[in-house]
Design a protein around this nucleic acid. Structure first.
Lengths: 147, 147
DNA sequence: TACAATTAAATTGCATACAACCAAAAAAAG
DNA sequence: CTTTTTTTGGTTGTATGCAATTTAATTGTA
């Protein structure tokens, strides 16, 4: 026990969270290769599968990604013909992002991914529930402090 | 309840983990500015504060970062004069990474960081313990599958 | 001891991430 | 109805991350 104990890796809570996130995303990669999606593109598609049409701001708010990340990412999804990008007629500042037929089709191919992932994660239902709520609690606490 | 329920953001466990990691790192940034460190550089220094001397492979194993990430990062830490990089005499394939006096001094300046962070995270001791063990459980499960 | 296999870093290429800044459009204020 | 402010996306710059490849050094083997 010494004065620098708080600065050891094994006493960090953030480090395993960081590890966990990285390793999970690394594990997604081969599962998503079939869909020609990266992890970030996958969650973007997931948002669009639920909403069909949206814009950069709403996607940004939902996924906690800024335009510097989203603009090139959405261009890549457009290049793969999973979405379309058009200026809104009502408000030219907005960019309408809409899923295509090809993008919708992808949803069926993606159905096996969540199941495969949860097999890798391999937690009990209770553990998943606990973890889920703790994660959102932290995210909430972090944004609370920020106002 | 429909067939695509497993593909909604709110039913993902991985998404809040990913969010949490990102938001925590974003919160580290201003705290680490004083030390002229990024988050990844910070955990690398943390490892070196404990070990004084190491090499790329051991750092890589400890931090789950590959040489493609570490090589440029260590060069930056060298440029800041926090570490030295020299080829090992015993085995020229190895790169000796050693902390400098300036790098050691940094440790005292860093002492306030963990405390500040845990104030932002704001979880109870029990919650921290639960979360910590669940995170390492997942990391363990993921690497188990990988042999 | 030659030669193959292994190991450690470095390099290359691609995809995030975010801060900081910018430009255009729309809304608010006077 | 101008002028100012705010909002929305885009751009630029810096720093990861990782897969795949390469190079050099060392180890194992016939």
């Amino acid at each position: 026990m010494n004065k620098y104990d708080s600065l050891t890796l094994k006493n960090q809570l953030c480090f395993p969270i960081y590890l966990c996130s990285k390793e999970i995303i690394r594990r997604y990669t081969p599962l998503l290769d079939d869909l020609d999606l990266t992890y970030t593109q996958y969650i973007t598609m997931m948002y669009l599968w639920e909403h069909n049409t949206s814009n950069v701001k709403d996607i940004s708010d939902a996924l906690f990604l800024d335009s510097g990340t989203l603009t090139p990412l959405l261009k890549k999804l457009e290049a793969k013909e999973y979405i379309t990008r058009t200026r809104s007629l009502k408000d030219e500042r907005n960019l309408d992002v809409t899923i295509t037929k090809k993008g919708l089709t992808l949803r069926d191919k993606a159905l096996s991914v969540p199941c495969e992932m949860s097999k890798c994660i391999n937690l009990s239902e209770d553990e998943v529930k606990t973890l889920y709520s703790l994660m959102y609690k932290i995210v909430g606490n972090l944004s609370k402090e920020e106002e």
